[in-house]
Design a binder for these strands. Structure first.
Lengths: 393, 393
DNA sequence: GGAGTTAGTTTAACAGGTAGACAAACAAAT
DNA sequence: ATTTGTTTGTCTACCTGTTAAACTAACTCC
């Protein structure tokens, strides 16, 4: 509840302040760190020497002089440890190793034919084990495991509800922690995507970002005041089930007129089948449609444009609700970007309130299909650094 | 940007920690403050004695012994200063004096016939001056002025857009600061309402609260992770203009199917006139309708129930978006609570996602018509205390 | 009335940050 | 080649505020 402050906290905070300054400005001299942070030069010196002892920071040769003694440049050591991140999708598992800078070192994908937990779980364990063997030797080794899932996740890492996987109440975090004895982070796929884009992607420095992950369904990750928003117990961001048409199409959630019934990959496919643009037995109907649009099929392009309008309606709602600085559209539907993006942009421009007063940017995910997994890496890395901070004086 | 930590900051933080502990647990002993905060007894003693010097805390006689020396009970001194809060509505100005506990000491209302800024502003100034003369003598006197407005307010207190008043780009904060030479706080009416309910009303201790102010239009104030959410530049919370019916009724915002076209006081009135339940030249049509419903007029009750469903649709969207702990419905439409509330509750229960897993409470505003003004008082008081913290070592 | 408890103050020790002095290392001007 | 001035990084003396522990005060209970 209440937090007491004393000299230890002061040191912890200043030390992480120095570390993050080095991370964000690498390479940088001690003198410059002192200038940026406002800390005394001596304080910076002593904190940096501790960070060097912990192998989180290293010195690289002398930098350029600006009319005096040449500075010793400091680097954040991205190789002090490595994170393992997993993205669990419908039909695939993607696993990667990243360094502490979030850079992907190694990756591996497995296609799945089922969504059964009992089948998938062992496959995932094997994937993780395989990755762990490839992790380079380092001071801290594997610092943690992050898993992004298309699900509602509770604050303590339990999967409460994963409609597209048909999972319910799976205690994924504790299961994995028991097996690997490492810190495990579980997060919703859209939330992780939002975080990934904020840390490594197109919305760095933006404190108000809405990340709409439009795939089979729609999930929305929200960075509000610089922090990921979860709501009371992880259900926040279910904007796919926002009503945009009262008495509209029925949805499996029990409601009617839900946004994702009009604006998702599934919505595209349903409508395409209804219009005879693809057949129901097609293996990859969405890819087929992209192909057809590429070939100039006007009926398909029209369909994309209709869907785009529905996407835009929902996004306009988001903008009116959150007044974000940045709206990012990610996941598979953006493969049809060419046809849908212009429609979305012009609709929002015309319909969002006070648009002219907002410095709103609308983008597709810069990290592409790596938004989520990068976000999971970020969670894992930041969790590790937080742990260091707490344990190491 | 970056915040440095040193012993002064530690003291500031601990001092406010002690103060807020006393505020929240008043009356309380030094020993108990130490226990709750985790601070050393000696530290608490010295900080308390400073707070007593500053007249923010006072000792009240000895408390009950629990088997040893009797404690000296400490009280937060609500009378060290007073705030002045104004609610600027469509058709009225409400002004109050509150003490530092947010208790209303004095109040005054003025009915308005116009919305012209040049007419209203001098009236407001006079109202404030009148209130200032009634403020009791105290250590800090009038600590600040807070004004709640039905408008989009920028972070620096400029009224960007007030559709119901027909104002645009009014620098209210600086105007008032120049006149009174006091700290001035300007905030959107729904935001202030949300804050008021969190501080003094029905959602105390709730960190995720949605406050829907349903009057002529709809504004929503959002407490997310314990903090009021503004968005990038104050436009957040324009949920009144969330599309709930694609291609629905046109709205003055330029959009179609906006929530407030279906679920506000104006929507009730429009529909009632259309159905011949009241005439267009009625002075207080909404009051008239309440009266009719009270008299058992079924057509009016039916109308309220229809409107309630629309309110519920929008609120369900809010719940799916924010996963709040608490949804509060405030402002004038709740005068028809008797007929609309049961409908709202049952609709949400049936349609919100994962409702059973959420410990969601739905309430009407406990502070009634004082939500907004109490919120403004809270802003002013907290701003004052923050200032004290910064200036007074 | 003594033993045990609880409340609040005082004291010395300690940790960590700051200011400022200092040496080292360099650029630019003479 | 010197001289001058600047920048970097370390070191020392000092200061602030928290803590632990001793201590005084005041009370309850047997």
């Amino acid at each position: 509840m209440s937090r007491t402050w004393n000299q230890y906290v002061v040191k912890q905070e200043n030390k992480t302040l120095v570390l993050t300054t080095i991370m964000n400005h690498t390479p940088i001299s001690r003198a410059n760190v002192a200038k940026i942070t406002g800390l005394n030069k001596g304080t910076v010196s002593s904190l940096v020497s501790e960070l060097i002892d912990e192998k989180l920071v290293e010195e690289s040769g002398p930098g350029k002089s600006s009319g005096g003694r040449r500075p010793v440049m400091l680097l954040f050591n991205g190789n002090a440890g490595y994170s393992i991140s997993i993205e669990l999708g419908v039909g695939y598992i993607l696993g990667v190793i990243t360094d502490l800078k979030g850079k992907i070192i190694e990756q591996d994908t497995i296609q799945l034919q089922t969504t059964h937990f009992n089948t998938i779980f062992p496959i995932m364990i094997n994937l993780i084990k395989g990755l762990m063997e490839q992790v380079p030797k380092s001071r801290y080794g594997v610092i943690g495991i992050g898993v992004g899932v298309p699900a509602v996740v509770s604050r303590d890492g339990e999967i409460l509800l994963a409609p597209n996987l048909n999972w319910k109440n799976v205690e994924l975090k504790s299961k994995l922690e028991n097996i690997f004895n490492l810190p495990v982070y579980i997060e919703n796929e859209a939330n992780a995507g939002a975080y990934g884009e904020m840390r490594y992607g197109s919305s760095q420095n933006s404190h108000h970002t809405i990340f709409a992950s439009i795939g089979i369904g729609i999930g929305v990750g929200m960075i509000l005041d610089g922090k990921l928003y979860h709501g009371l117990n992880g259900f926040a961001g279910e904007l796919g089930h926002m009503t945009i048409e009262k008495d509209g199409k029925t949805c499996r959630c029990g409601n009617r007129g839900c946004w994702e019934r009009y604006a998702s990959e599934q919505a595209v496919i349903d409508e395409a089948i209804k219009r005879g643009l693809v057949t129901a037995d097609q293996v990859e109907p969405f890819e087929q449609l992209i192909q057809l649009a590429n070939d100039g099929n006007q009926a398909v392009i029209d369909l994309f444009e209709e869907i785009a309008t529905y996407i835009a309606i929902g996004l306009t709602n988001c903008i009116n609700i959150f007044n974000p600085e940045h709206v990012i559209i990610g996941n598979r539907l953006m493969r049809a970007k060419e046809w849908i993006y212009p429609i979305i942009e012009s609709y929002i421009l015309e319909h969002a309130i006070g648009f002219h007063q907002n410095k709103l940017k609308i983008d597709s995910a810069k990290l592409g299909t790596y938004s989520t997994i990068s976000g999971m890496a970020a969670f894992t890395i930041e969790g590790f650094l937080l742990d260091q901070k707490r344990n190491h004086a």
